Computed example of a mutant assay.
Amino acid sequence: MTASIVVSDREETAQRLLASSARKSYDPMVEVDWEAPIPDDKFGLTPEWSTLYGTALWDEMTDAQKIELTKHEAASVSSVGLWFEILLMQMLLRDVYGRDKHSRHVQFALTEVADECRHSVMFARAGERLDMPSYGPHPVIHKLGRIWGGFFKGANAYASVMAAEEILDMMQRDFMKDERVQPVTRTVSKIHVLEEARHIRFAREEVGRRIEGASWARLQLERLNTAVVVYFVMKSMIRKEVYSNAGLDPERAIAEAKRNQHYKDTVRTSGSKLMQFLDSVGLVGGPSKRLYKKVHLL
């Protein structure tokens, strides 16, 4: 079983990532112009990423309705990002609790926690600035996240966190480049993408190290846990309330979103890099495939 990236020495990787953090890190409270007006003619996110783009309902909507919907969708995505950043920080701190604090590995993990703290505030502030509800995952999933955060560790935790971060990353790479999108969304996306590149590299190498030599039984557990987390993250990205809050008929909107082949194809294409990596380290197989298919990643 060979990872799709070369796994270097843990300390070597951490030293390189610490140097990168020192060269280029961002303070969202300074980098984002939180006082700038919110343009009436800008989408909340890239319209092609809207769950209704390409449907009959989308074609019937006015430009103002499309903009309002995508602002709610952007707020929903940000709120899920915030929720998972908090879970990630908990996992990292538990993982390094008993490790040598002089090691570069632990020092980068703590640097990442600092980054994630800023990202969490940034996501919260973005939703507030767009004057959107505080969505977050469904209450049941929120409670399950608390349980997951307390019990899972090692490769399954790093793989799950990496997968969740890559899901956000694949969307935000489009948001940050799209001049049709609200400036606040673009800047928040740019900061997150640039800093998460380090975090994803860190997590990928840890997955490669910790999955190596895993027994058959452990591999099945790692596969299932990772797939379950990805499934719930994908299902949580857009809360159903966004449709009624945007002034749409929620029953029709939910039905059309479920059938939206354009959205399914967009997720599958954008998530191909993530799925290739998970497959390369043996984390795709058995029941996990069914879960990935349900959220259109396979």
Rank of each mutant, 00 (worst) to 15 (best):
A155D: 02
R201L: 13
Y135M: 01
S76K: 01
N260Q: 05
S120E: 14
Q220P: 02
A257V: 00
E241M: 05
A159H: 02
F232W: 14
A253V: 00
K101G: 00
Q15L: 08
R210W: 03
V267H: 06
E256C: 04
R259D: 14
P183I: 08
R146C: 00
R104F: 15
M162G: 03
A124C: 11
S160H: 07
M91W: 01
R173Q: 14
M170L: 04
A255V: 03
H296G: 05
K235W: 10
G150L: 07
A22T: 07
R125E: 14
L298M: 15
K71T: 05
K153G: 13
D63V: 12
V140Y: 06
E179H: 14
K101M: 10
T111A: 15
R204L: 02
A164L: 05
G44S: 12
P137V: 09
L297M: 15
E128M: 14
T13C: 13
R180G: 08
F108H: 05
E68N: 11
S270N: 13
S134V: 14
D169V: 01
K190C: 03
Y53H: 12
M89R: 09
V207L: 07
N245M: 08
R125A: 15
L45R: 05
H138F: 03
V30M: 12
V77F: 13
L278E: 13
E241V: 10
D33F: 00
P137H: 02
S20W: 10
M170C: 00
A36K: 03
M91Q: 09
T62M: 12
S270R: 15
E68H: 10
L52I: 03
K153E: 12
D178Q: 11
L221S: 12
V281S: 06
P287S: 09
L283R: 12
R16H: 03
G247H: 14
M89L: 02
R239A: 15
E35Y: 00
M1K: 10
P47Q: 06
A227I: 09
H296Q: 10
L219K: 15
Y263S: 06
S4K: 11
Q172P: 07
Y231S: 10
Q15R: 14
K143L: 04
H192M: 03
I141R: 08
E222N: 08
Y97H: 13
S272I: 06
E48T: 14
E73L: 11
N245C: 06
V188D: 03
Q182E: 13
K190V: 01
V230P: 01
E11W: 12
G149D: 07
S272L: 05
D249K: 01
W216G: 09
G98F: 08
E256P: 04
S280H: 05
W148E: 02
V281A: 10
A74I: 04
P39Q: 04
M170Q: 00
E128Q: 15
P250D: 04
H199F: 10
